[in-house]
Design a protein around this nucleic acid. Structure first.
Length: 334
DNA sequence: ATACACGCCTGCTGGC
DNA sequence: TGCCAGCAGGCGTGTA
C-alpha cells in the first residue's frame, strides 16, 4: 500500500533514469492500467512516444513526469506552455499494489501492465550514449494506473510538488508551477515546503468527522494512508474518532508534527513493506515495517506504555491503537 | 457543502 | 484437505 514515503522512494529511484530521457517505445500490455487516461491506449502511446521527460515530480501519492517535445529546451511558449504544445505530463498512481521497476531484459513480471522504453540523456556522463532503459509498470490489483494529462498552473503559484534535484536545478521552469489536471484537487503533502499548516488546521476544524477521516482526505492533506494515519495518531496520542472540529488547534499542530516525523522516518527506512507488493525501482523492500508501533501490531504491547494494542473497525477498514495512550473520546457522536 | 456507500481488482487467510 | 467468504485498501463516482 504505497503511501507518501513509498511513492517518494519510487520517484527518487526513477529521477536519475528518466530526467532528460526520450521515450523510445510504449507497450500497453493491459489496458486496465489506463483507467485514468482519457482516451484509448493508442492515444496514450501516441502522445508519449518521442517525448522527452523533464523531471520526476510527486505530490502526495501521485507522481508525474512533465513532457516536452523532442528537441525542445523547455522554453516558454507564448501561451505559457512548455515547448511547442500544451504542457502535458505522464501521470502515475500506484494504487494499492503498483510498482515501477527499472532495468533491461528483466524477466517479465507476472502483473506487467505497461512497458516504457526510454533513452537516457547521457549528456552529463561524458557524452557517451547510454543503453536504453526499460520502465515496467507492474500492478497486481490494477487500482493503480497511468495517463497522459494536460497541466494547469498551480493556484498558489508555488512549485507543484517534490522534484528532487530539480527543486534547485530548475526552480523557474514552467513545469515546476504546473500540475496535471487530475492532480490539481489533491492538497499539498506535509513534506511540501509550500504546505500551509494553518490552512490544514482551519480545514480540519470545519470537519465534524473523526480526525482519522480528515487525515485520509487527500483534499485536506495528501500522502497519508491507513498505515501512517494510525502511526501518526499513536505518536500524537489521539484516538482516531476524535471529532476534528473539537480538537484544540495545538493538538492539530502537534499531530501535523508527528505526521511529518513518521513520514520522514519511513522515508529513511525506504518505506514500509509487508510483502512483495511494495518495492523500490530495483525490486527491493523497505524496512519501516520493523518500526511500526501500532499498525498490524494488535495483540502486541504498546512501545510506550506496554498496554496491548487493539485493532478496531473504522471507516470500513481497520484502525490500530493503544487503548491507554489513545482513549476513546468521552462523547461519541452519531 | 459534506458524508458515506460502493465498485474497481487479485491474492491471501481463516473458518468450516 | 478443499472451498469460499472475507479482507486488504486508494480513489472516483453517485447519492442523500
Amino acid at each position: 500500500m504505497p503511501e507518501l514515503p513509498e511513492v517518494e522512494v519510487v520517484r527518487a529511484g526513477l529521477e536519475p533514469a528518466v530526467t532528460g530521457a526520450r521515450v523510445l517505445h510504449v507497450n500497453v500490455v493491459d489496458g486496465r492500467a489506463l483507467t485514468r487516461h482519457d482516451g484509448p491506449a493508442e492515444d496514450f502511446v501516441e502522445r508519449l512516444t518521442g517525448r522527452t521527460i523533464a523531471a520526476a515530480v510527486r505530490r502526495g501519492k501521485f507522481m508525474w513526469f512533465p513532457l516536452v517535445s523532442d528537441g525542445s529546451d523547455g522554453s516558454v511558449g507564448s501561451d505559457g506552455s512548455v515547448g511547442s504544445s500544451r504542457p502535458e505530463a505522464l501521470v502515475a498512481h500506484l494504487g494499492m499494489s503498483g510498482q515501477v521497476l527499472l532495468g533491461r531484459g528483466r524477466e517479465a513480471a507476472r502483473h506487467r501492465r505497461i512497458l516504457i522504453d526510454v533513452q537516457p540523456s547521457g549528456t552529463d556522463r561524458g557524452g557517451r550514449g547510454e543503453q536504453p532503459v526499460e520502465l515496467e509498470f507492474v500492478d497486481q490489483r490494477t487500482f493503480g494506473s497511468m495517463a497522459i494529462d494536460t497541466m494547469v498552473p498551480t493556484v498558489d503559484g508555488a512549485p507543484a510538488g517534490s522534484a528532487g534535484a530539480a527543486d534547485t536545478r530548475d526552480p523557474g521552469a514552467v513545469w515546476r508551477r504546473s500540475i496535471p489536471t487530475q492532480v490539481s484537487h489533491i492538497a499539498r503533502d506535509p513534506l511540501d515546503p509550500a504546505f500551509d499548516d494553518d490552512r490544514f488546521v482551519a480545514m480540519a476544524r470545519k470537519r465534524s468527522s473523526g480526525i482519522k477521516r480528515v487525515l485520509l482526505d487527500q483534499g485536506v492533506v495528501s500522502g497519508i494512508g491507513n498505515i501512517y494515519a494510525d502511526e501518526s495518531l499513536w505518536a500524537a496520542k489521539l484516538h482516531f474518532d476524535r471529532p476534528a472540529d473539537r480538537l484544540p488547534r495545538a493538538d492539530l499542530h502537534r499531530l501535523l508534527a508527528e505526521v511529518r516525523s513518521v513520514l520522514r522516518r519511513a522515508l529513511e527506512d525506504g518505506g514500509t513493506s509487508f510483502d512483495a507488493q511494495y518495492v523500490n525501482v530495483n525490486g527491493q523492500s523497505g524496512y519501516f515495517s520493523q518500526r511500526l508501533a501500532v499498525y498490524g501490531q494488535q495483540g502486541k504491547p504498546c512501545p510506550r506504555c506496554g498496554t496491548t494494542i487493539v485493532r478496531e473497525a473504522f471507516m470500513n477498514r481497520s484502525s490500530h491503537r493503544c487503548p491507554v495512550c489513545q482513549p476513546a473520546p468521552r462523547q461519541r457522536r452519531r
